[in-house]
């Protein structure tokens, strides 16, 4: 932390200590910074020099791990790829991801998402087991294109913080898990669609979505979760009506 050119920015942080506080409050820290410093580095400066009790999650510092998501001036962002210089001289407000319960300061309780992630069976379910001796699964570039963008998800939960329907109804499976569900359903190597449709077809599945589509705006990996969810409304509608016409494969 040298050569700051004398520039100092005010970072307003939400603080909440479950042992002493009934409600969160805000504290403002004056942080000297350089133009190449991210919001995450600003938080690290606070923890190292100003207040060691500030709690936040981070790991890779390069938009890969998905740990450091938070609200920066009310917008869901990865703090590692958001730069302090863009908020100078006004300063910025940092809060934990909205719609999730706050554990402490900037750390939220992710349990609800982790349960939902399991429920979508986030792994390839092949038609029949294929031993390594039989070689690899082959896929055309077009087959790969069907799911590739959705496989880029880093579980950062920015899309959940962008989704008012999730905030209003915690039963909703939500954009991230549903986009991952589609990632497996759209994969030519996968045969688990019928199992996953049970969730898609439920009120808690795709029907909690009203196509706000802010999830797709905030995704740091340029995934379009709103598309995955709404394509599956069409799939669910087909599934609903076609069962009267054509018998289902697995009874």
């Amino acid at each position: 932390m040298n050569a700051t050119n004398g520039k100092v920015i005010a970072i307003e942080c939400l603080r909440y200590d479950p042992q002493t506080d009934d409600a969160p409050h805000y504290e403002t820290y004056q942080v000297p910074f350089t133009d190449d410093m991210s919001v995450l580095q600003g938080l690290q400066y606070i923890k190292d020099h100003l207040d060691g009790s500030l709690t936040f999650r981070w790991s890779c510092r390069m938009a890969i791990c998905g740990s450091c998501g938070g609200m920066v001036n009310g917008v869901p962002r990865l703090s590692c790829e958001t730069f302090l210089r863009d908020f100078y001289p006004e300063g910025l407000r940092v809060e934990p991801l909205t719609h999730f319960p706050i554990q402490r300061d900037l750390a939220v309780d992710q349990t609800d998402f982790l349960v939902k992630l399991r429920s979508i069976k986030p792994y390839i379910i092949p038609e029949a087991p294929k031993p390594v001796t039989e070689g690899t699964f082959l896929q055309t570039p077009q087959q790969m294109d069907e799911y590739y963008q959705y496989s880029q998800c880093i579980n950062c939960l920015l899309c959940y913080a962008a989704c008012p329907q999730y905030g209003l109804d915690r039963e909703f499976t939500g954009p991230g898990a549903l986009a991952l569900l589609h990632r497996y359903n759209a994969d030519s190597r996968d045969a688990g669609k019928a199992e996953r449709m049970e969730l898609v077809n439920a009120d808690e599945g795709v029907w909690g979505c009203t196509l706000v589509s802010y999830c797709s705006e905030v995704c740091p990996k340029s995934i379009d979760p709103a598309r995955a969810v709404n394509q599956n409304k069409v799939e669910s509608t087909k599934d609903y009506f076609l069962r009267f016409v054509a018998p289902r494969r697995n009874g």
Partner: peptide
């Protein structure tokens, strides 16, 4: 584990994106 859950009061005012969405819905 004790946690704090924020309300959704006035959520549509928190971001211009939500205001445009609300106009669309209304």
């Amino acid at each position: 584990m004790k946690t704090y859950t924020r309300t959704m009061n006035g959520w549509w005012r928190r971001n211009p994106f939500y205001l445009w969405y609300t106009l669309r819905e209304w």
